[in-house]
């Protein structure tokens, strides 16, 4: 069994994050980290691999030089090898372009039974890539999983949606996206960190994937950011310490602002 887990390097959400003049995220702050829910994706991939006995887990990432840190984290957690799609022409890809590149990489890896992703990345938060990636690959997408079981050649996923709870089943090969509720991600131990240093990271360019650079990156993006501005600070803010009448003051505030 061969499992690919897609991981993304994102700016740390605890640090100040900014957009550049082109409206694109500043990714050079040095405060990058593995996207949080991707840790749950790696964990899910490892657990499934362990259950299958001898399955191979390959971490796949795309992005500038620093992006390899996300793949390295996956290697430290226990993935066997990594693929990093690194190409200046891929910069500025929108979600659809990203899915196209990742699909080409999964196809080139070959023989993949299962693709695992996180349900969202904390930078763009579009959550579009998992389903788009599955559509590109022509495999079923079982998204937003809070529980995953592999039963022979099929995959069963439980998910909790806004208005319903569902259990879905599909045959492998398939894609799953996992929620942060799917599991508790393991923390890399010292042996894992040491072992990761010797694990292979393969670099691929768009040309290696047979992708015309004009179809992805900022030149191929189907959406374009026209403007970006920091939200103006909230004005006339009030902070009171309760001395016995703060609840009444709040009621007055709500009525005054026609909110109650």
């Amino acid at each position: 069994m061969r499992i690919v887990v897609a991981v993304k390097h994102v700016p740390d959400i605890q640090a100040e994050r900014t957009l550049g003049e082109d409206g694109r995220l500043a990714r050079d702050g040095g405060d990058g980290t593995l996207n949080e829910v991707d840790e749950n994706a790696v964990e899910a991939a490892l657990v499934i691999a362990e259950g299958a006995g001898g399955a191979e887990v390959i971490a796949l990432t795309m992005g500038p030089d620093d992006a390899v840190d996300a793949a390295r984290r996956a290697l430290q957690m226990g993935a066997d090898s990594a693929v990093h799609v690194l190409d200046d022409e891929a910069a500025g890809s929108d979600a659809m372009g990203t899915a196209h590149v990742l699909a080409a990489a999964v196809t080139k890896i070959g023989g993949v039974d299962l693709v695992v992703t996180g349900m969202a990345a904390t930078d763009g938060l579009t959550s579009l890539v998992p389903a788009a990636l599955a559509a590109e690959l022509g495999i079923p997408a079982l998204t937003l999983a809070v529980d995953v079981t592999v039963d022979g050649g099929s995959l069963v996923v439980r998910r909790e949606l806004d208005h319903a709870d569902e259990t879905l089943r599909a045959a492998l090969p398939a894609l799953i996206s996992v929620s942060d509720r799917a599991n508790e991600a393991r923390y890399p131990n010292f042996a894992g960190i040491m072992a990761a240093r010797k694990k292979p990271v393969t670099l691929w360019s768009l040309a290696d994937l047979g992708i015309d650079a004009a179809t992805v990156g900022s030149s191929g993006a189907r959406t374009r950011i026209l403007s970006a501005a920091p939200r103006p600070p909230r004005e006339d803010r009030v902070l009171v310490t309760d001395t016995g009448d703060a609840g009444t003051k709040l009621a007055a505030f709500l009525v005054q602002h026609k909110l109650a």
Binding site: T18, L19, A221, R222, T223, I225, L226, A229
Partner: peptide
């Protein structure tokens, strides 16, 4: 941040 995004 607030952004305006155009579909091309």
């Amino acid at each position: 941040w607030t952004t305006r995004v155009e579909v091309v």
